[in-house]
Amino acid sequence: MPDTTLDEALADLAALEDPRMRAANEARGDDHGINLSRMRALAKRIKADQPLARELWATGETSARLLALLICRPREFDADELDRMLRETRVPKVNDWFVNYVAKKTPLAEELRLRWFDDADPTVAAAAWSLTTERVVKSPDGLDLDRLLDLIERDMKDAPGRLQWAMNETLAQIGIHDAALRPRAVRIGEELQVLADYPTPPGCTSPFAPIWIAEIVRRREG
């Protein structure tokens, strides 16, 4: 089967556009009208295609960028290219997919984590904290967890939303995975009260760190 062209991919995306879906997505800050399951099916049909992914990204369109993130090969981007892409991911779903499907999958993840950690742009810093959470869970050796808790205790309460959420994830995962630091992580969460009132559907775990930590530890040790 011939490779999909940019015009063909854009036409496929346009065919999936649903005005009702757009209205629902725009209420969450995502300016596209495509059911994501249908977009994933389109990506599966196209298969991995790095040149097309770059062309889709360059359009600047949210739906095209989401498709690009599904069909790209993360290891084929260099660090500067990934840095530029991150700084363009203002739409929530594009940012979420970029961090989880590309930044966390590239062999450059640790280099980027260090590069982005102290960035003045909270969207960029949030990505660094997400990569830090990944290390806390999968490869904590070499991380200064006490210093991370110091930074969380100092900065999380007043951090912008996306950055605050990412720091809170790191706090919770430190508490879950490091028994020695668990009491401190819980205390920080209780003192800061970040996301304490977050509406949590029945059957879901609250993102409030003390509750999150307690529930996951209970499941593991139960």
Rank of each mutant, 00 (worst) to 15 (best):
M1P: 07
D3G: 13
T5D: 09
L6W: 08
L6H: 07
D7Q: 13
L10K: 13
L13P: 02
L13W: 03
A14C: 09
A14R: 10
A15Q: 14
L16F: 06
L16P: 03
D18C: 11
R22C: 04
A24K: 09
N25Q: 15
A27R: 12
H32V: 10
G33C: 08
S37G: 15
S37C: 09
R38D: 15
R40A: 12
R40E: 14
L42T: 03
R45S: 15
R45P: 02
K47Y: 08
K47C: 11
A48Y: 07
D49F: 10
L52H: 01
L52W: 02
A53I: 01
A53L: 03
A53D: 01
L56C: 03
W57F: 12
A58N: 06
G60T: 09
E61N: 12
L67K: 01
A68H: 03
L70H: 12
I71Q: 06
C72P: 00
P74W: 10
P74F: 08
R75K: 14
E76P: 01
A79H: 05
D80H: 12
E81W: 09
D83A: 13
D83M: 09
M85N: 04
M85E: 03
E88Y: 05
T89K: 02
N95H: 15
W97P: 00
V99S: 05
N100P: 02
Y101K: 14
K105S: 13
T106S: 14
L108C: 11
L112Q: 08
R113K: 13
L114E: 12
L114F: 10
R115W: 11
D118S: 13
D118W: 08
D119P: 04
A120P: 02
V124I: 13
A125M: 08
A126Q: 05
A126S: 14
A126M: 07
A127P: 02
A128T: 05
L131E: 07
L131C: 13
T133P: 00
T133L: 07
T133M: 14
E134T: 07
E134D: 15
R135C: 12
V137L: 07
V137M: 11
L143K: 06
D144I: 08
L145D: 01
L148A: 07
R154Y: 05
R154P: 06
D155I: 05
M156S: 00
D158M: 05
P160F: 07
G161P: 05
R162C: 09
L163Q: 02
L163C: 04
A166M: 04
M167P: 03
G175P: 04
I176E: 01
R184G: 01
V186H: 00
L192P: 00
L192H: 00
L192N: 00
L195C: 07
A196Y: 00
Y198P: 00
P199C: 06
P199H: 06
P202K: 11
G203F: 05
C204E: 14
S206L: 01
A209D: 01
P210Q: 06
I211G: 00
E215V: 15
I216V: 15
V217H: 06
R218V: 04
R218F: 08
R219K: 15
